[in-house]
Structure formats: structure tokens, C-alpha cells
Simulated assay, not measured.
Amino acid sequence: MADLQDESEAGPCVGAPESPAPVVADALERAAALLAEHPVADGCNTLVWTLRQTPYHDTDTDIPRLRSGAVGAQFWSLLTPTTGDRVVADTLELIDIAHDLVHAYPDELLLALTAGDLADARNRGRIASFLGPVSGSTLTDSLGTLHAFHKLGVRSLAPAGATWAQDDLTPFGHEVVREANRLAMGLDLTGCPPEAAVQIAGASRAPVLISHTGAAALTRHPLNVPDEVLLAVRATGGVCMVSFSAEQTGDSLHAVADHLDHIRGVAGPQSVGLGACFGSDPPHGHPTGLTDPSGYPRLFAELLDRGWPEPDLALLAWDNVARVLRDVEFTSRAAHHRKP
């Protein structure tokens, strides 16, 4: 497995920092101070899939760069391009790799199952590590697989691609949404058709999230969402997390900030977050200045220069994700209370 502690002997890194446009020193200092109090909760890292393909792959994610970028929580994506009979087996293998990754660095990473674990990791100086999402296509006509994933520590499900979450949410799809709510598993609408995304958001009693997206109003891309989906997520109290994939959000830090501005304007400051998709190289790379997690302070400095108030930046970095996790668990407790 790749060594997350030190890549100094691994040769040039795929995600080596580039030379971004200069940022006003005062804004960068303010950004660093803010992130020291409100670290980044990143909604998407694909390192687990990369490690499955090439265990010693040179990646843009390691502990020093996560620390440099003030990352305090990370969602390790368990999505696989596999379809058909192999999807469950491949997902289980990714879960196994994710557990090995967390256990290999006990002084740096902490497996997180609840919102309380998120706070505990922060207080102990660890990076909270959530497992998920898994693909909704792993579920066919039974909820047993969902229960098994939950027992293995998975805390997020992505319905995109599932037969029960196409343009219309099927009766089984409604069962999945209810059971995910009961289990306190987040529903990640990334990649869902807009009609299905709106239906799932409407059916869920808990906040929903979109772990890596952009504004379709700015960039047309299959993973970017139109404003009606942003409003549906906002109505649940959920969060839309902006990707650092150049094909989704542009090839510069400035372009990513444009997407954050748009989503904040439509969905509100309580519904915007960050899901960078570090861990592997997207087809068109990462935006200049955001090629690895160490670029987060520079992005926050750019947003300060654009006039974002510090309370909104605290929401963007940490507070929105922490609140959504708490609310998902509150919905679960209420469901258990109602169930005979």
C-alpha cells in the first residue's frame, strides 16, 4: 500500500503543487487562521480505488499534504466502475482496503461512524475518516446488502446508476430511502438524473448531500447539477460539495470559486461544501492551484478576497458537514422511536 506519510523518495508526484496566481498575504494569513479553527471536511477522496488498482501509486493525497491543507475529515469514496455480478465483491474489497488504510495510520486517521466521532477526531488531532458512498447498484431487491455495508462501517449510499433510481424512484427505491434514513446512512445524489435527485430529496426525511459536483449553470457536465436540484438539496437541509475536477469546475482556482459563489447564491451558505475528488487524476486534471489538499488555504483566501464573511467560510469548511451528520443521526433516532 502507498505510504501516506512521506513521498519524498517516490519521485515526482502526480499531484505536485503548481505555481498559482499570487494571493494577498493578509487574506492567506486570515484563511490559515480560520482553517485552524474550522478544518476542512472533504466530501470525496478516491484514493481507495486508486490503491486497489496500483497499491504503490504516486498520488496527490498523503498525510503531510492533508495536514498542510487543514483537512480534518475525509470521506473515502467506495464507488467502483464495476457493473453486474462483480459490483458487490469489488465494493467489499474497497471497504477492506479502506479499513487497512485507516488502521495503518492510527496516529493520523480515525475511523468515524458518527457525528460524535467527527468531533472526537478533531479534538484528538486526527483526521476523521468516513467510509462511503457505496454504489446503489449493489442493491437489487433486498435491503440485506445495505444492512451488511452499514455493519462494515459504511455511512453513505449513492443511488446513481441503480435500477430503482432512474427517472422515477421505484417502490423499492422508496424502501431504500426509508431504510437509509433509519440506519443514519447519508444519501449521496451525485450523478443522479435531476428528476430522480429531486424525488429522492423529497422522499428523504434526513438531509441529503452531493459529494462532488459543480453548478450546471456554469459548466455542463453529467455530474454537475441544475439549480432545481440545488434548491431540492437546500429544502432538506443538505449540502452540495464542489469538486476540484477541471472538467467539472474549470481549470483554475478562480473558476472553482465561481462555482462556490453560484451554489452559495442559489442554495444558501448553509448548503455548500467541498468534495475535491483528490486521490486520483481526473481525465483533465485538477485546477491550477488546487492540485492537492495543500491548496485549500489558497482557495479560502480567494473567497475572503471576494467578500465571503468568515462565518460563511466556517460553514463551508466544517460546520455544514457536521450539522448534516448530526441531523441524519437525529432522523435515525426518530425513526427508531416511531418503529413498533
Rank of each mutant, 00 (worst) to 15 (best):
G273Q: 06
G186C: 11
R30H: 14
C13E: 11
M185L: 06
N181W: 00
T163H: 06
W49N: 09
F278E: 03
D188V: 10
A70V: 04
D42V: 02
A215D: 14
T140M: 14
A334D: 07
V102G: 05
A322S: 13
G69Y: 00
V229F: 03
G11Q: 06
L79V: 12
H38L: 13
N123D: 09
G15Y: 00
T291R: 07
A276L: 08
A128Y: 00
Y105V: 09
A27T: 11
L315M: 13
P64Y: 03
H337A: 12
H221T: 05
D3T: 00
N123H: 04
L274Q: 11
R338D: 14
I127R: 13
T46Y: 00
D58R: 10
C192D: 02
T138F: 00
N320T: 10
G125L: 15
L143G: 10
L66T: 08
R30I: 07
P12S: 04
H150L: 13
G214E: 10
H147F: 10
H337Y: 06
R52M: 02
L47T: 13
L183M: 12
E228L: 11
G125M: 11
D168F: 04
H337P: 06
I95K: 02
T213I: 12
L109N: 09
E9W: 00
V154Q: 04
V48I: 13
G15P: 02
A235L: 13
A32V: 12
T288M: 07
Q53K: 06
P311H: 03
G202P: 09
R86N: 13
R338N: 05
F244W: 02
A115N: 14
D327Y: 09
L78M: 14
R326T: 05
S294W: 01
T288C: 12
P226L: 04
G237E: 09
A246Q: 05
V23H: 08
V71E: 10
S135Q: 03
T331H: 03
G237V: 12
G43N: 14
D85T: 15
E247I: 12
L157I: 14
C240K: 08
L109E: 11
V88E: 09
L313G: 04
S243I: 07
L260G: 03
G84M: 11
G289W: 00
L315W: 03
D58G: 03
L79P: 05
E108K: 08
H103G: 15
S211G: 05
L47V: 09
D312L: 04
E108T: 13
G279S: 05
H284P: 14
G250C: 08
D261H: 07
V88I: 01
C240T: 12
G15V: 10
G265I: 07
T213L: 15
S135M: 14
S135W: 00
T83F: 01
G289E: 11
A98T: 03
L35H: 08
H103W: 01
S135K: 03
P17S: 10
A162Y: 01
G279P: 03
K151T: 07
D107P: 02
G214A: 14
G161P: 10
T82P: 01
D90V: 07
L152G: 02
Q74W: 02
E93Q: 15
I63V: 06
T236V: 08
R30V: 01
A2T: 02
G144Y: 10
A197T: 01
H38V: 11
R65N: 13
R220C: 02
S332P: 04
H103I: 13
Y105G: 05
S8F: 00
G250Y: 06
